[in-house]
């Protein structure tokens, strides 16, 4: 398909290094498709990454996330800061296809070499989404983008996981969507470093902002805890920060369509960026990211091995047994693991 030099790891990495956008786009595809070049590419690029500040933007459908990303990226560009954008939308569970329309709202960024926008479908793979997203972030980071914005629909655990790969997570709210604060229902309140109440010219914007304010005063569970609630690898403790120096998520009102309130939001993001560095939280989050990442990769790799050893047939039999309630899932896993160990020990 693509030019021959983009079919090798060396060619692609050289292309990326020389700033070739086709090479960058191809690398992302290899990673998304988990092609045989994916792992060598990631290995080659990993040392180059680590410079970018990663910003997660999440919120319910209809809150105006894409328009906000458009405005935010536009403002970064005015400051001559390059921006990579990943817009994640769900894959249809019925067809496996996806309709990715976020670019429509980012038309102001067209024609700017300092911007790279990539639409990603969730592709519905177990846990693989967050991993693929983290990998694509890494590629954009390695390509030298200074800010990487990742936009996800804020509904459900997988989005929380993606958002957790960001250093600064902005949760977007908008008035008039039924609930005063959508983030509560979606369970993403806790991951917010910053809140943006978008469409602030609409009725109810003040109420939404006030409701958020109140929740913060009530003391939403902090981010450290929520990030622990999965089964994680052992992690180091968060840095000890004096209570008066703890980060309290600020609330910004924006009207993204009119580019209002964006300066303040950007300043808030950069404040948080500085806070992360000065408080030592960044290192801790980097450690957490690495832990999460490692856990996901390990889980996938182990799963892959188990599947390989036992074969699909054996697995589907077990699945059938669980489905018919002849077996509970915990015993099922125990049996599978026993079978696996037996297999490798006798091999």
């Amino acid at each position: 398909m693509a030019p021959a030099q983009y079919n090798t790891v060396a060619g692609l990495v050289a292309g990326l290094e020389s700033g070739n956008r086709r090479a960058l786009a191809r690398i992302i595809s290899h990673i998304e498709n988990n092609s045989e070049l994916a792992q060598p590419l990631l290995a080659a690029l990993y040392p180059r990454a680590g410079q970018a500040h990663i910003i997660g933007i999440t919120g319910a459908p209809g809150t105006g996330k894409s328009t906000l990303v458009n405005a935010l990226a536009g403002l970064y560009r005015q400051q001559d800061i390059s921006v990579g954008i990943i817009a994640v939308d769900p894959t249809s569970p019925f067809s496996g296809g996806a309709l990715l329309g976020d670019r429509v709202r980012m038309r102001d960024l067209a024609g700017d070499a300092g911007v790279f926008i990539r639409s990603m479908a969730t592709r519905g793979s177990l846990g693989g989404l967050a991993q693929a997203t983290a990998d694509v972030i890494m590629v954009l980071d390695a390509a030298g983008f200074q800010r990487i914005i990742i936009e996800t629909v804020g509904v459900g655990q997988s989005e929380v996981e993606i958002a957790s790969t960001a250093y600064t997570t902005v949760v977007v709210e908008a008035p008039g969507l039924g609930d005063e604060v959508q983030a509560i229902k979606a369970g993403v309140l806790e991951i917010a470093d910053i809140f943006a109440v978008n469409k602030a010219d609409r009725e109810g914007a003040d109420r939404t902002a006030m409701a958020l304010q109140m929740m913060l005063h009530l003391g939403a569970p902090d981010r450290q805890q929520t990030m622990h609630h999965g089964r994680m690898l052992p992690v180091s403790l968060p840095p000890d920060i004096a209570p008066d120096r703890q980060w309290t998520p600020p609330i910004f009102k924006t009207i993204a369509t009119q580019k209002q309130g964006i300066e303040a939001l950007l300043a808030g993001i950069e404040d948080h960026n500085r806070y992360l560095a000065e408080s030592g939280t960044r290192q801790w989050r980097q450690y957490l990211r690495a832990a999460t990442e490692l856990r996901m990769i390990l889980r996938d790799a182990l799963l892959e091995r188990v599947l390989q050893q036992l074969g699909e047939e054996a697995i589907s039999e077990t699945v059938q047994a669980v489905a018919q309630r002849r077996l509970d899932p915990y015993s099922a896993v125990r049996q599978l693991l026993e079978a696996y160990h037996h297999r490798i020990n006798t091999a």
């Binding site: 309709l99 329309g101 429509v104 709202r105 038309r107 369509t257 009119q258």
Partner: peptide, 9 residues
Amino acid sequence: GEYHEPVHF
């Protein structure tokens, strides 16, 4: 100013 529409399928 100019208007850009939200896209819906």
